[in-house]
Design a protein around this nucleic acid. Structure first.
Lengths: 156, 156
DNA sequence: TCTCTGGCTTTTGTTGACCATAGTTAGAGG
DNA sequence: CCTCTAACTATGGTCAACAAAAGCCAGAGA
């Protein structure tokens, strides 16, 4: 019914999750606007006003969140120039930002299954095989692992 | 640099993400306390006071969030009786709740890589192979897919 | 010089997520 | 009957996430 706990961790009340990566991660990027801005970045948006408009937040919120995400290192602000235009800045995903895609896709997959009447309006497919892209939990051999077969251990 | 967009979707300003599963998902379970309560459920916690204590939130917050998660269907409230005790209730994960594990594990994986000084205090291993459990994005054939090789399409 | 546009910043106000403290309820044991 | 505990509920307050509306600034074009 749950994950296994290594002997040292067996008594859950004896250890504190004070350096928990899950906690740090949601504290860093766990707002609605941050996740939706990331969604737009995955869809190819790079410019300020497009982010604000497509996410449906005010420019004040978009500015604050884009600044936070840039300082975190999830997005990078890069100069660009369209012909006959002055130099402007665009926001592009860094590796740190691309590495969040499994989380965002995981939310989409879960939302499609449980929060939609009609199985979700969009789907993500692999351009080469044409099959659906899915988020999975696997061991080093590429075998799927269920929650019951996982054990939580201390890193040494 | 981003996902591909199907021709119908190519002009991002022509369609609205109003039934977006990502949006619905974070709106439903996107608070710090909800995610951390789920973490505890994965670690095996079932009782009210243990949830509140281990997550480090007040009982008022734990009560409100557990109620929300139960109404959503992520947790189920089940009666149980310890010998010589009155009937009490415990919160157990439903399939809907277990299906959120890839998201939570994805956050942990990302936090381990980018937000920890020392690679993260805990690790999740497959009890059978002993190897680390990882969250991956794959096509139907079990091949890893990168963001650049994904295409967003309308479900028909 | 004036205006326009993209990219913000500022201000005001609301809501919701949280904390701290204290109080309530249902049954079991004394 | 009284007390104890698990599981809440209530009250009051702080702070962060948002909305709406307005203002600011740097250049390019007229």
């Amino acid at each position: 019914m749950a994950m296994q706990l290594e002997p040292v961790l067996a008594d859950r009340d004896r250890w504190k999750a004070e350096h928990c990566s899950i906690d740090k991660a949601i504290s860093a990027i766990g707002t609605r606007s941050a996740i939706l801005l990331l969604r737009e970045a995955y869809y190819g948006t790079t410019r300020f006003d497009a982010f604000a408009r497509r996410v449906g937040v005010t420019e004040a919120v978009a500015a604050a969140r884009l600044k936070e995400l840039t300082e975190l290192g999830v997005l990078a602000k890069q100069p660009y120039r369209e012909p006959g235009q002055r130099t402007r800045y665009e926001y592009v995903l860094t590796e740190m930002g691309r590495d969040l895609l499994p989380v965002v896709l995981g939310l989409m997959q879960w939302g499609d299954k449980y929060l939609q009447d009609d199985a979700g309006p969009l789907k993500v497919v692999d351009t080469r095989s044409g099959s659906a892209v899915r988020v999975r939990m696997q061991n080093a051999d590429g075998e799927d692992v269920e929650m019951e077969d996982m054990e939580l251990a201390v890193r040494r």
